[in-house]
Design a protein around this nucleic acid. Structure first.
Ligand SMILES: [Mn+2]
Ligand SMILES: [Mn+2]
Length: 290
DNA sequence: CGTCAGG
DNA sequence: CCTGACGGCTCGAGT
DNA sequence: ACTCGA
């Protein structure tokens, strides 16, 4: 099937001149790489029907006018149920782009086991735009996880920070995973009290980088790998190799619609093997308890 | 962007 | 007919 | 019970 894009020439990124058609082409072309990471995850859409300069809204529920070939899952919410669309195939992404979706946010679990995440995310949120501090934090998190026998991956978010991601084997529920992440984050904040904090409230961060582990919960989301962000220049959340953090050009918006395919033409996706490294936290948690 | 209630 | 509102939650932690 | 924050 091929999705027809209405108003394909409508400009969605006025600064860079990218149109809705350009976005549909991008997601079509990246879909094989992207879907590996997000297939069967419930979607939360960030929609901008008139581009990044227009009004926007977040959408979780499948609407009545969605075509029935878009896969969906009905999950529990606090008071009742909600039906989310699922990332299933390139046509789904294209159809949702036609509806004005720019950014795709995804659950940390998949539809067949929604209470058991297969990703743990350390979200590194700098004060302002201090990216050197983000890099320092990412390396600290990685080193600590490595000491606990866990392999971690890193990606730019396209916004201001990085995500450090641990693939999981879905043996632990969200509470278990979040408790573990919290202990790691608090230990690092204790060791670097001038640089890092776990304080949720902004007025207690005092210019420090926030080690945010609170997205590791049921029905919470993270920006999807290879999602565009609705920001000038069309930055893309891009999986990295760890050694790329040393590059002079590195930054949270290093990759974008204008250079992502040059990059992927030169190297494979650094996360190509991520799901072959799905890990249990059990040993790491035991090590912590000793 | 699509739908719907209200003017 | 046109205009405006709506689309989203959750979830946990802190106060 | 309400607010914060993503
Ligand atoms: Mn962040
Ligand atoms: Mn955050």
């Amino acid at each position: 099937m091929s999705i027809e894009i209405d108003n394909a020439d409508k400009v969605f990124f006025p600064d860079a001149g990218y149109t809705k058609g350009d976005l549909a082409d991008y997601y079509q072309r990246i879909s094989a790489e992207m879907l590996r990471h997000i297939e069967n995850r419930p979607l939360t859409l960030h929609r901008f029907p008139d581009g990044i300069a227009g009004v926007n809204f977040i959408q979780k529920s499948v609407q009545d006018h969605y075509p029935d070939w878009i896969k969906r899952v009905t999950v529990d919410k606090e008071d009742g149920e909600i039906t989310h669309a699922l990332a299933g195939d390139a046509d789904t992404l294209a159809w949702l782009v036609d509806q004005g979706t720019i950014a795709f946010h995804v659950w940390l679990s998949r539809a067949d086991k929604p209470h058991y995440p297969d990703r743990l995310i350390f979200d590194l949120d700098p004060p302002g735009d201090d990216f050197d501090l983000v890099v320092k934090a990412a390396r600290c998190v990685r080193e600590r996880l490595d000491g606990l026998g866990l392999q971690a991956f890193v990606m730019t978010t396209g916004s201001s920070g990085l995500h450090v991601v641990v693939p999981l084997d879905r043996s632990a529920d969200f509470d278990t995973v979040r408790d573990f992440a919290e202990r790691v984050a608090e230990q690092l904040a204790d060791e670097h009290p001038d640089n890092f904090t776990t304080a949720h409230r902004k007025d207690k961060r005092h210019g420090r980088l926030y080690l945010d582990i609170r997205r590791n919960a049921y029905a919470q989301t993270g920006i999807a790998p290879y999602s565009l962000r609705a920001k000038p220049g069309a930055p893309i959340a891009t999986p990295l190799d760890w050694d790329e953090l040393s590059d002079a050009e590195i930054g949270p918006q290093r990759f974008h619609l204008g250079n992502i395919f040059r990059r992927l033409g030169q190297r494979d996706c650094p996360w190509a093997e991520i799901d072959r490294h799905r890990q249990s936290l059990s040993a790491a948690i035991r090590q912590f308890d000793d």
